[in-house]
Structures are given as structure tokens and as C-alpha cells.
């Protein structure tokens, strides 16, 4: 059996799709997603994986935007609903609802948290000069979460700060 001859017959997956895609990119890449009608983006290097929504296990007395924890291949990953955290849109769980799992590595620790968003949309290549500061009088998203704004065609995308997103607030007991 000539394995090499057989191997040549197998079509290489993605051979076609390579055409027309510009692999030589400059600047940083960002994954964009939707919260209601608004576009947001995070650094693509922080993205661990994108999962479909599944019902998590509740954490007792957690704030409402923390939906609970899921099992991601043996790792316990907390799930944060960004729509509830930022107060944007409705927290409905549809077929397009996805969880973006982000890992952020600070000096001592690395933390993995999943974020519920309405849909993932695109990958953007952005030069750092194109990132513009956000206006100080903002909406419901606190300024500490925003790294800047970028223009993508006729829309504006908000770049979120992963380090701040990953910060966990202490529970408060409510009687």
C-alpha cells in the first residue's frame, strides 16, 4: 500500500478558502461581537474558545449578571452575562447566543471566564493609531472597561479591556 500516493489523493481541507484571504496582516486582531445592536471587540489573543450557550450551575448569592459556572474540559469556568453586566439589551438565550471564553494572563495568575453575548460577528485588523479614545460622557458601560473606539465601515466598535472585564466583585449578602 503506497501511503504517500493515497495521501496525495486526499483533498487538503481549506485549500480553496486560502485564496483571497490576506494572511499578512498588520496591527492587532480583534474579535467583534454583538450586544443588542452595538458592536464590541476584544483582543483575539485572549479568546480561548467560543461555545454555544448551555445552562450553567448557579453560584449561591452571586450578582445577577454572574450566571454560574460550567465545566469546560474539567476546568470550572464562571459565566458572566455581559448584557446584564452592562445593562444593554435583553438577556434572552436564543440559538445565536454564544459564550466567548476569555483567558487573561496577569503577572501571577491566569483567569478564564466565559462571557455571554448575543452573537459573534467578525475579526478586525486594527492599527493602534486607528484606535480613538472614547468620549468621557459615556453610556452604561463604565470607562474603565473601554480601551477605545474604532471605525469599521460605517459602524463604531468599542474595544473592551479584558483585564477589567475579568475582575470579580465580592458578593454581598442580602437578607
Amino acid at each position: 500500500m503506497n501511503i504517500q500516493a493515497m495521501a496525495q489523493d486526499i483533498p487538503v481541507e481549506g485549500e480553496q478558502s486560502i485564496e483571497g484571504v490576506d494572511f499578512i496582516t498588520s496591527g492587532d486582531q480583534y474579535l467583534t461581537f454583538l450586544l443588542a445592536e452595538e458592536q464590541y471587540a476584544v483582543d483575539i489573543l485572549c479568546v480561548e474558545e467560543i461555545r454555544s450557550w448551555e445552562r450553567p450551575t448557579k453560584i449561591p448569592n452571586a450578582p445577577s449578571y454572574i450566571k454560574g459556572v460550567i465545566n469546560m474540559r474539567g476546568i470550572i469556568v464562571p459565566i458572566v452575562d455581559l448584557r446584564l453586566k452592562f445593562g444593554i439589551g435583553e438577556a434572552s438565550y436564543l440559538e445565536t447566543t454564544v459564550v466567548i471564553v476569555l483567558t487573561y494572563q496577569s503577572e501571577e495568575t491566569s483567569r478564564t471566564i466565559g462571557f455571554v453575548v448575543d452573537a459573534v460577528s467578525d475579526v478586525l485588523n486594527v492599527e493602534s493609531v486607528d484606535i480613538k479614545p472614547a468620549p468621557a460622557f459615556g453610556g452604561c458601560v463604565g470607562p474603565q472597561y473601554i480601551d477605545g473606539l474604532i471605525n469599521s465601515e460605517h459602524k463604531v466598535v468599542t474595544i473592551l479591556n479584558v483585564a477589567h472585564l475579568q475582575k470579580v466583585e465580592k458578593h454581598r449578602l442580602h437578607s
Binding site: P60, I75, I76, T112
Partner: peptide
């Protein structure tokens, strides 16, 4: 026993989490 502290924080009344036979998490 799996720690909740790794990716989250210590939760009052909960000492940790575990993964059950069906793959779901239990506190």
C-alpha cells in the same frame, strides 16, 4: 474537588465545585 478560586473567587458557604458523571458542575 475543584477550586472555585482559580477562575472566580471563594464563595461563602461553598468549599469548592466538582464535575458529576453527566459533565455538569455541582457545588
Amino acid at each position: 474537588i475543584k477550586s472555585l478560586k482559580d477562575n472566580y473567587q471563594q464563595v461563602a458557604g461553598i468549599s469548592g465545585a466538582t464535575i458529576l458523571g453527566d459533565g455538569s458542575v455541582a457545588m
